Simulated scan of single mutants.
Amino acid sequence: MTDPFRRLLGVLLLLALAACAQTDRAAQRAQAEPGAPLDTMTDPATGQPVIRGPVLTGTAPRTPGKTSGISSIGAPASQGAEALNTTTRSERQQAAAAPSGGERRLGTTIASLGDPSQPGFWVKTPLVQSETQGRIVNPANGKSAKVRLIPLGGAAGGGSQVSLPALQLLGVSLTDLPAIEVFAG
Protein backbone atom coordinates (compact mmCIF):
# COMPACT_ATOMS: atom_id res chain seq x y z
CA MET A 1 0.00 0.00 0.00
CA THR A 2 2.87 2.36 0.61
CA ASP A 3 4.34 1.71 -2.85
CA PRO A 4 1.38 3.23 -4.80
CA PHE A 5 1.21 6.05 -2.26
CA ARG A 6 4.89 6.88 -2.81
CA ARG A 7 4.44 6.83 -6.56
CA LEU A 8 1.49 9.23 -6.32
CA LEU A 9 3.45 11.49 -3.98
CA GLY A 10 6.40 11.46 -6.40
CA VAL A 11 4.17 12.34 -9.37
CA LEU A 12 2.58 15.21 -7.42
CA LEU A 13 6.02 16.51 -6.44
CA LEU A 14 7.15 16.46 -10.09
CA LEU A 15 4.02 18.30 -11.17
CA ALA A 16 4.56 20.95 -8.50
CA LEU A 17 8.15 21.48 -9.60
CA ALA A 18 7.11 21.70 -13.25
CA ALA A 19 4.50 24.35 -12.38
CA CYS A 20 7.11 26.39 -10.52
CA ALA A 21 9.44 26.21 -13.50
CA GLN A 22 6.72 27.38 -15.90
CA THR A 23 5.81 30.32 -13.66
CA ASP A 24 9.47 31.36 -13.49
CA ARG A 25 9.75 31.15 -17.29
CA ALA A 26 6.62 33.26 -17.78
CA ALA A 27 7.94 35.91 -15.40
CA GLN A 28 11.31 35.92 -17.16
CA ARG A 29 9.62 36.24 -20.55
CA ALA A 30 7.46 39.14 -19.31
CA GLN A 31 10.59 40.95 -18.12
CA ALA A 32 12.45 40.21 -21.36
CA GLU A 33 9.54 41.11 -23.68
CA PRO A 34 7.42 43.96 -22.32
CA GLY A 35 3.95 43.83 -23.86
CA ALA A 36 4.18 40.10 -24.59
CA PRO A 37 1.23 37.93 -23.52
CA LEU A 38 1.56 36.22 -20.17
CA ASP A 39 0.57 32.59 -19.67
CA THR A 40 -1.35 33.36 -16.49
CA MET A 41 -2.46 36.70 -15.14
CA THR A 42 -4.55 37.67 -12.16
CA ASP A 43 -6.29 40.94 -11.37
CA PRO A 44 -4.41 42.39 -8.37
CA ALA A 45 -7.62 43.95 -7.01
CA THR A 46 -9.77 40.81 -7.07
CA GLY A 47 -7.27 37.97 -7.41
CA GLN A 48 -9.41 36.54 -10.24
CA PRO A 49 -7.81 35.16 -13.42
CA VAL A 50 -7.70 37.57 -16.34
CA ILE A 51 -8.17 36.70 -20.01
CA ARG A 52 -4.87 35.97 -21.72
CA GLY A 53 -3.64 38.81 -23.90
CA PRO A 54 -0.88 41.36 -24.35
CA VAL A 55 0.22 43.48 -21.43
CA LEU A 56 -0.67 47.04 -22.41
CA THR A 57 1.51 49.95 -21.42
CA GLY A 58 1.38 53.66 -22.22
CA THR A 59 -1.73 55.60 -23.13
CA ALA A 60 -4.58 54.89 -25.49
CA PRO A 61 -4.40 56.49 -28.93
CA ARG A 62 -6.56 59.55 -29.53
CA THR A 63 -9.66 59.23 -31.65
CA PRO A 64 -9.24 61.26 -34.86
CA GLY A 65 -11.31 64.42 -34.80
CA LYS A 66 -11.67 64.47 -31.01
CA THR A 67 -9.93 67.35 -29.32
CA SER A 68 -9.83 68.66 -25.81
CA GLY A 69 -10.42 72.38 -25.70
CA ILE A 70 -8.30 74.45 -23.40
CA SER A 71 -11.47 75.84 -21.83
CA SER A 72 -12.33 72.40 -20.44
CA ILE A 73 -9.00 72.03 -18.65
CA GLY A 74 -9.32 72.84 -14.98
CA ALA A 75 -13.05 73.53 -15.31
CA PRO A 76 -15.44 71.84 -12.88
CA ALA A 77 -16.87 68.58 -14.17
CA SER A 78 -20.44 69.84 -14.04
CA GLN A 79 -21.62 73.33 -14.80
CA GLY A 80 -24.59 74.78 -13.03
CA ALA A 81 -27.86 74.98 -14.94
CA GLU A 82 -27.75 78.78 -14.75
CA ALA A 83 -24.48 78.79 -16.69
CA LEU A 84 -26.14 76.80 -19.49
CA ASN A 85 -29.25 79.01 -19.63
CA THR A 86 -28.48 81.62 -22.32
CA THR A 87 -31.85 83.40 -22.27
CA THR A 88 -32.09 87.01 -21.15
CA ARG A 89 -34.19 88.29 -18.27
CA SER A 90 -36.67 89.94 -20.70
CA GLU A 91 -37.01 86.68 -22.67
CA ARG A 92 -37.79 84.83 -19.44
CA GLN A 93 -40.37 87.46 -18.42
CA GLN A 94 -42.00 87.30 -21.84
CA ALA A 95 -42.18 83.48 -21.71
CA ALA A 96 -43.64 83.54 -18.20
CA ALA A 97 -46.36 86.09 -19.11
CA ALA A 98 -50.00 85.08 -18.70
CA PRO A 99 -51.68 83.50 -21.73
CA SER A 100 -53.53 85.82 -24.09
CA GLY A 101 -56.41 83.38 -24.71
CA GLY A 102 -57.49 81.28 -27.67
CA GLU A 103 -55.48 78.26 -26.56
CA ARG A 104 -56.38 74.66 -27.24
CA ARG A 105 -55.35 71.91 -24.80
CA LEU A 106 -53.39 69.19 -26.61
CA GLY A 107 -52.85 66.84 -23.70
CA THR A 108 -50.52 65.83 -20.91
CA THR A 109 -47.01 64.49 -21.46
CA ILE A 110 -44.03 63.40 -19.40
CA ALA A 111 -41.29 65.99 -19.71
CA SER A 112 -37.57 65.38 -19.69
CA LEU A 113 -34.66 67.74 -20.24
CA GLY A 114 -33.88 68.19 -23.93
CA ASP A 115 -30.56 69.27 -25.42
CA PRO A 116 -29.29 71.96 -22.99
CA SER A 117 -27.07 73.48 -25.68
CA GLN A 118 -30.13 74.33 -27.83
CA PRO A 119 -31.18 77.87 -26.84
CA GLY A 120 -34.66 79.27 -26.35
CA PHE A 121 -38.01 78.10 -25.04
CA TRP A 122 -39.18 75.00 -26.88
CA VAL A 123 -40.77 71.58 -26.42
CA LYS A 124 -40.26 68.64 -28.76
CA THR A 125 -43.45 66.65 -28.42
CA PRO A 126 -45.43 64.00 -30.30
CA LEU A 127 -48.60 66.00 -29.47
CA VAL A 128 -48.09 68.28 -32.53
CA GLN A 129 -47.70 67.49 -36.23
CA SER A 130 -46.17 70.82 -37.26
CA GLU A 131 -44.18 73.54 -35.53
CA THR A 132 -46.37 76.07 -33.75
CA GLN A 133 -46.47 78.43 -30.78
CA GLY A 134 -47.88 77.15 -27.50
CA ARG A 135 -47.62 77.01 -23.77
CA ILE A 136 -46.74 74.36 -21.18
CA VAL A 137 -48.04 74.27 -17.61
CA ASN A 138 -46.75 72.49 -14.53
CA PRO A 139 -49.98 71.40 -12.78
CA ALA A 140 -48.09 70.82 -9.53
CA ASN A 141 -47.43 74.55 -9.00
CA GLY A 142 -49.39 76.33 -11.77
CA LYS A 143 -46.29 77.86 -13.39
CA SER A 144 -46.28 78.10 -17.17
CA ALA A 145 -44.00 78.99 -20.08
CA LYS A 146 -44.73 80.13 -23.63
CA VAL A 147 -42.77 77.82 -25.93
CA ARG A 148 -42.28 76.79 -29.54
CA LEU A 149 -43.91 73.37 -30.01
CA ILE A 150 -41.77 71.16 -32.26
CA PRO A 151 -42.97 67.78 -33.61
CA LEU A 152 -41.28 64.70 -32.16
CA GLY A 153 -41.88 61.28 -33.66
CA GLY A 154 -43.50 58.58 -31.60
CA ALA A 155 -46.76 57.83 -29.85
CA ALA A 156 -48.70 60.68 -28.21
CA GLY A 157 -47.93 59.23 -24.77
CA GLY A 158 -44.23 58.78 -25.54
CA GLY A 159 -42.97 61.79 -23.60
CA SER A 160 -41.50 65.13 -24.58
CA GLN A 161 -38.17 66.93 -24.47
CA VAL A 162 -38.21 70.39 -22.91
CA SER A 163 -35.60 73.14 -23.14
CA LEU A 164 -33.57 74.01 -20.06
CA PRO A 165 -34.98 77.57 -19.70
CA ALA A 166 -38.57 76.30 -20.04
CA LEU A 167 -38.07 73.68 -17.32
CA GLN A 168 -36.58 76.33 -15.06
CA LEU A 169 -39.61 78.59 -15.59
CA LEU A 170 -41.88 75.70 -14.63
CA GLY A 171 -39.93 75.29 -11.37
CA VAL A 172 -38.97 71.72 -12.21
CA SER A 173 -35.75 69.99 -11.17
CA LEU A 174 -33.71 69.08 -14.23
CA THR A 175 -33.57 65.44 -13.14
CA ASP A 176 -37.32 65.07 -12.57
CA LEU A 177 -39.78 63.63 -15.07
CA PRO A 178 -42.91 65.70 -14.36
CA ALA A 179 -46.25 65.42 -16.12
CA ILE A 180 -46.93 68.74 -17.88
CA GLU A 181 -49.93 70.06 -19.79
CA VAL A 182 -49.39 71.23 -23.37
CA PHE A 183 -51.48 73.94 -25.06
CA ALA A 184 -51.36 75.20 -28.67
CA GLY A 185 -52.15 78.76 -29.68
Rank of each mutant, 00 (worst) to 15 (best):
residue 157 G to I: 06
residue 104 R to W: 01
residue 137 V to W: 03
residue 151 P to Q: 04
residue 161 Q to Y: 05
residue 165 P to E: 03
residue 143 K to L: 02
residue 86 T to R: 12
residue 51 I to R: 01
residue 70 I to R: 14
residue 173 S to I: 04
residue 35 G to N: 15
residue 185 G to P: 05
residue 36 A to N: 13
residue 26 A to T: 15
residue 124 K to Y: 08
residue 120 G to S: 07
residue 156 A to K: 15
residue 102 G to Q: 00
residue 118 Q to L: 13
residue 122 W to D: 08
residue 45 A to R: 11
residue 83 A to R: 04
residue 128 V to K: 02
residue 27 A to T: 14
residue 159 G to F: 05
residue 4 P to G: 01
residue 22 Q to P: 00
residue 22 Q to T: 12
residue 177 L to R: 14
residue 62 R to D: 07
residue 160 S to W: 08
residue 138 N to Q: 08
residue 11 V to W: 00
residue 5 F to N: 05
residue 55 V to S: 10
residue 49 P to I: 09
residue 105 R to T: 09
residue 50 V to A: 11
residue 160 S to T: 15
residue 54 P to T: 07
residue 148 R to I: 09
residue 101 G to K: 01
residue 145 A to V: 06
residue 37 P to C: 14
residue 4 P to T: 00
residue 173 S to F: 03
residue 112 S to H: 03
residue 140 A to S: 15
residue 171 G to S: 05
residue 33 E to K: 11
residue 88 T to A: 04
residue 112 S to Y: 07
residue 144 S to A: 10
residue 22 Q to D: 10
residue 184 A to I: 06
residue 111 A to G: 09
residue 24 D to N: 04
residue 42 T to Q: 05
residue 32 A to R: 13
residue 5 F to A: 15
residue 40 T to D: 02
residue 160 S to L: 10
residue 31 Q to G: 13
residue 43 D to E: 10
residue 162 V to F: 03
residue 55 V to Y: 14
residue 138 N to K: 06
residue 16 A to Q: 12
residue 62 R to I: 03
residue 162 V to N: 07
residue 157 G to A: 12
residue 155 A to I: 10
residue 148 R to A: 06
residue 51 I to H: 00
residue 22 Q to A: 12
residue 152 L to H: 08
residue 6 R to I: 14
residue 54 P to D: 09
residue 52 R to E: 07
residue 182 V to R: 01
residue 137 V to P: 00
residue 7 R to G: 08
residue 126 P to A: 03
residue 91 E to I: 03
residue 179 A to D: 12
residue 179 A to Q: 14
residue 136 I to N: 00
residue 155 A to E: 10
residue 112 S to Q: 13
residue 45 A to C: 06
residue 41 M to A: 15
residue 34 P to M: 08
residue 138 N to G: 10
residue 37 P to E: 13
residue 171 G to N: 01
residue 25 R to H: 05
residue 24 D to L: 12
residue 173 S to E: 09
residue 46 T to F: 06
residue 97 A to C: 11
